[in-house]
Nucleic acid binder design. Structure first.
Lengths: 334, 334
DNA sequence: AACATTAATGTAAGCGCTTTCATTTGGTTT
DNA sequence: AAACCAAATGAAAGCGCTTACATTAATGTT
């Protein structure tokens, strides 16, 4: 592996000059620039990003922490981030946090120890305090899908409450009155916000929210399945169920069918997230769009702008969800 | 940010000693070890992984190139890799190759320029020659889901042919005789291997493979949809269709239903990959399991063993697929 | 007690770059 | 032709570590 020194030697110039032509900026005569470029070429020179980082105190890497590397939401998010960062020549170091406070902290430590210039965090378990503290100390980071007022500038979030509201409102407007709700773990902000939105829509239509029609799942398929079964068990009638994410909706649909009910004729189901899976399902799932890929891009833009001083458009910090109407919901209005 | 120098000063020892206690290995008296540890603690010292890399000529990072960061297969794969590597303190740098030769090469270059100690590559478009060349020059890498005889040791692959064979065989054994095939892009090795397996099973049962019953898709949902429509268009009767992956199976199912056919009663459909989605679908998809997460882990093990001299079990290079029987296939035997 | 061994620690030279500051070069100006 | 100035280039000091080698301290041997 050729070093900058060998290049300088071959080109008959000093290290500094080689460094200059690499980094574009400073003025170098066209003649020497060519000499150097040729030397690099013949030596097949590749600058060591590590040496460069050490000398310049900038690693050109950003760390990403997501709950799981698999899972449609995270995939889309990472995809958005990578695309954006890669074209800027930055690289992406990833770690998983597993929705567990210890593991998340661990991941953050890991990324920091790796000298990332900035972090993009999708954390759920770690406390607000911890993050506020983290922000006041050294480290630069941006939070996705979480809103903490004290560090609002570091947050890119979805208006989850409005999403929950939209989902339930759509049902109400189509004549449903008895609506069950399958939630995610309510200690997770997004889950509780979505539920709040649901209640809001209900209230707006003068319906008293029946706690017996709420079932708390785990954001996963079996969770949805179990919750649906539990809901059916109550014998309280309901014509529709809104699920706090698409995976649980899939589980719920399955449970309903196992009990001999047809979707959407016997029961309507509404999802949340609009993952790819939602259109694959049968019937195609009505859901609420969570533009997570765009949010990932936005997070990357924020970093490019705030950490690397790149010229980027202003970033928007709160994204709005949108209803996606498909086949899993039936209208009760004749 | 404290440096090793400050630690050494506080502890009243030399740089070298601090370095020694950090790296465990060499003998240091218990007393000084404690002094140093305490000093690190009070200074909240975090070694710079960059300086360390430069000095030791080892970046402790491995690059991963996948076609897309989203997509269930890649998610599972990365998940397996990260888990394994993270516990070993290595970090994971990711990039996307987009199934395009130029973009894949670009990604590889990118990762190499980042001083990764090794690469894990899931590439499809780049040529065998390029990879063989890459192996003979400097760089250490392992290939997932691809088998190249000349560099077999660098390959971890699925026996795709056997997978295709199993899928079709299952159908045949259940009385199906007229079986259509929706393939992935046949220039992709895995796609053509799977199809070969299909033909093999057919031949074994004395059935002549009808080319008109082959339709080449793009491994994506709409591809499956379109192919199914095309197949139906031919008016050639068939009782089952095997799809080269689960996404296309979803699309095919949808197309069939759009044409008024019931799955599996009017037509059986078989998938491939056994992604999470397969069990969410309705009816639950019969498919062939592709243990990609295990393969990711295995790739990581290989790297730990061969690049970092860690003590790891032997790696297996060829994985075997398994049939997963679910509800989307019906038996024609009385 | 004198010496040989071995363990513990220190010294200092890099690793491959960036960057500040000094020096050289070549073109203008008078 | 002397003086000047900006542009181009070079010299050298780090960046924060690792590590080969040298030195010192501790222990054992006779």
């Amino acid at each position: 592996m050729a070093t900058i020194y060998q290049v300088s030697e071959l080109a008959g110039v000093s290290l500094a000059t080689v460094s200059r032509v690499m980094n574009g900026g400073t003025r170098v005569s066209e003649k020497t620039r060519e000499k150097v470029n040729k030397a690099m070429e013949t030596l097949n020179y590749r600058p060591s990003s590590i040496a460069r980082s050490l000398a310049s105190n900038c690693s050109n890497s950003v760390g990403i922490l997501v709950s799981e590397l698999h899972g449609p939401i995270y995939g889309a998010m990472m995809s958005g981030i990578e695309k954006q960062l890669r074209t800027a020549g930055k690289h992406v170091i990833i770690a998983a946090g597993h929705s567990d406070a210890a593991s998340e902290k661990d991941g953050i430590e890991f990324l920091i120890a790796r000298n990332c210039d900035a972090l993009i965090l999708h954390v759920e378990a770690v406390s607000d305090e911890y993050l506020i503290e983290l922000a006041t100390t050294q480290h630069k980071f941006i939070l996705i899908n979480r809103y903490i007022p004290q560090i609002a500038d570091n947050c890119i979030s979805l208006n989850n409450r409005r999403g929950g509201y939209l989902a339930t409102k759509a049902l109400l407007e189509n004549g449903h009155r008895d609506i069950a709700y399958i939630s995610g773990p309510l200690w997770k902000m997004d889950a509780s916000d979505r539920y709040l939105g649901h209640q809001e829509a209900l209230a707006e239509h003068g319906i008293i929210c029946n706690d017996a029609l709420l079932s708390e799942g785990n954001f996963q398929e079996e969770g949805g399945n179990e919750c649906m079964l539990a809901l059916l068990e109550t014998k309280i009638p309901f014509s529709a169920v809104v699920c706090a994410n698409d995976e649980m909706a899939a589980g719920a649909m399955q449970a309903a069918r196992d009990k001999g009910m047809a979707v959407p004729n016997d029961i309507s189901v509404m999802g949340f997230d609009n993952v790819l899976l939602a259109q694959y399902m049968y019937p195609k799932l009505s859901t609420v769009n969570y533009p997570v890929q765009d949010m990932g891009k936005m997070a990357a833009s924020w970093i490019l702008k705030n950490i690397y001083q790149a010229n980027q458009p202003d970033v928007s910090h709160v994204f709005e969800p949108e209803l996606v109407w498909r086949d899993s919901v039936i209208s009760l209005k004749r």
